[in-house]
């Protein structure tokens, strides 16, 4: 096409890219427990939020009732291969407790989990433990990043980010942007 010769194409492309991709604007979300705001994070554009809430779930076999803290899930509106969940369980006060809590949920989240790395870092200015690994779920391989963030006043935030095999790798930036926006509110 002759008309796309020269700088016309470049100019128009630049214009359109500038119009269409504003750097992921964010919607702040606050996680509360019993009216207390614990932490906040920002949801990337075009992601859906599932708020959840405190409730009790009964084991149908044993008949015992288990209290469940609010679980917030976020995922892209058009993609099921990426998921991120937040929970601040009651009675879990330290990173070590959080690791035990994680031990008790990861067998439901991931089959055959293999931890590939564990590191200590700071998220939102708070000490945090990051556990990366792989596993399977529904016959598909997944990559998971489980994070325990030590909130003040005896709480922790457990954040799990999951990328299924075949997920668009650019979502990693979105997931890291969510971590970068994490703030304690106490």
């Amino acid at each position: 096409m002759r008309i796309f010769s020269g700088s016309t194409l470049a100019t128009c492309a630049a214009l359109w890219i500038g119009v269409v991709t504003p750097v992921s604007a964010e919607t702040p979300i606050t996680y509360t427990d019993a009216g207390r705001a614990l932490f906040s994070f920002a949801v990337p554009d075009f992601w859906g939020v599932r708020t959840g809430g405190p409730r009790e779930i009964e084991d149908t076999e044993l008949g015992d009732i288990r209290g469940v803290a609010r679980v917030m899930g976020i995922k892209p509106v058009t993609d099921d291969n990426v998921w991120m969940g937040f929970v601040s369980p009651a009675g879990v006060a330290s990173i070590d407790d959080g690791l035990r809590y994680l031990d008790d949920i990861d067998k439901f989240l991931v089959k055959d989990p293999t931890v590939t790395s564990t590191s200590d870092t700071r998220i939102g200015g708070l000490p945090a433990r990051v556990i990366r690994g792989t596993g399977t779920r529904d016959g598909r391989g997944i990559n998971f990043t489980a994070t325990i963030i030590d909130l003040p006043k005896g709480r922790v935030a457990v954040v799990v980010a999951i990328l299924r095999d075949g997920a668009d790798p650019t979502y990693v930036d979105d997931l890291n942007a969510v971590f970068a926006s994490f703030r304690s509110l106490q």
Partner: peptide, 23 residues
């Protein structure tokens, strides 16, 4: 944009609810 992805089957969400911690 909003077609087809709902909360019908949300395996990761459902599993994060369930824990043995207090069991």
């Amino acid at each position: 944009v909003t077609v087809g992805v709902g909360y019908g089957y949300d395996p990761f969400y459902d599993s994060m609810l369930w824990n043995d911690y207090y069991h």
